[in-house]
């Protein structure tokens, strides 16, 4: 099934997190105050985007205690639930990109480009960190499309922030007409950070022998071919999997499943 229980769970999780942010931003309720870059959960638990904290540290040579605690907590969370679970389950830009991809398939648009190699995003992360270190300014965070999008949603409101929406729009069109998962899989430095965590994370998708066959066209539903190959070949996890569960749903027979175990 293309839209099975994992798809539903994943979308509900995304909506729940977004709703908690929105409700907290618009009212006096202190459930999840802030945004995806930094927040306070239930009024006490800090959460800070780890890559942002690292950029900030590289740029200024210092980091405030709350930021350290928040970044460590977020890092620890994704080491358990899967590095790029952020990309698959939480990231608002991921939803925009998924929508563009869905539309692209519906409209039968032939996308001419395979996208840059999956490893390009690690270089992007390197550039971001080197840039912050040399200049002393964490410039990327100002124009990080992921951050721009959630700031626009949470603080500017729809219709304001024309430049923000333009940047998001460019990525939408890139996905729609140029390359599948072109930003997420290949270019996003934040994705690269979570991929790095994903090499060591506990939650992962595995291929199980003797549980029925895996559909031949399983590649159609996976946004990360490098992850799928990784899983099907029973290799050491390469961190590319976004834990979206599309393949688990699509196979539907237990031949692919989530597992919460260290090691491969």
């Amino acid at each position: 099934m293309r839209y099975g229980k994992w798809w539903v769970t994943r979308r509900l999780t995304f909506l729940l997190i977004l709703a908690l942010f929105l409700v907290s931003a618009r009212s006096g309720v202190n459930v999840l105050v802030g945004n995806y870059s930094g927040s306070t959960f239930l009024g006490v638990i800090p959460a800070v985007d780890p890559l942002l904290a690292i950029q900030s540290y590289f740029a200024t040579g210092g980091l405030y205690q709350t930021a350290i605690i928040g970044a460590v907590l977020v890092g620890a969370l994704y080491l358990v639930v899967g590095g790029r679970a952020f990309c698959g389950w939480v990231c608002p830009l991921g939803v925009v990109v998924d929508f563009a991809n869905w539309l692209s398939r519906k409209l039968k648009i032939k996308r001419p480009f395979q996208g840059f190699s999956s490893s390009t995003k690690y270089y992007m992360m390197g550039i971001v960190l080197v840039g912050a270190t040399i200049s002393g300014v964490a410039l990327y965070e100002m124009y990080n499309p992921v951050s721009i999008l959630h700031r626009a949603i949470l603080f500017e409101g729809v219709g304001i922030g024309a430049v923000s929406w333009m940047i998001v729009g460019i990525l939408f069109l890139y996905e729609l007409g140029v390359a599948r998962s072109g930003w997420c899989k290949s270019l996003c430095p934040q994705g690269a950070f979570y991929s790095t965590l994903g090499k060591f994370s506990l939650m992962k998708v595995v291929a199980n022998e003797g549980r029925g066959s895996i559909p031949k066209n399983i590649g159609e539903v996976c946004p990360e071919p490098a992850a799928l190959v990784n899983i099907l070949n029973h290799e050491r996890q390469n961190g590319e999997c976004t834990l979206c569960g599309a393949c688990v749903d699509y196979a539907g027979n237990g031949s692919l499943s989530f597992t919460l175990k260290p090691g491969s």
Partner: peptide, 16 residues
Amino acid sequence: DTSVTQSHGSGVDRSA
């Protein structure tokens, strides 16, 4: 880093 060269779109062939 182990990188896998890109598959071609929908055609991820499975032979696990």
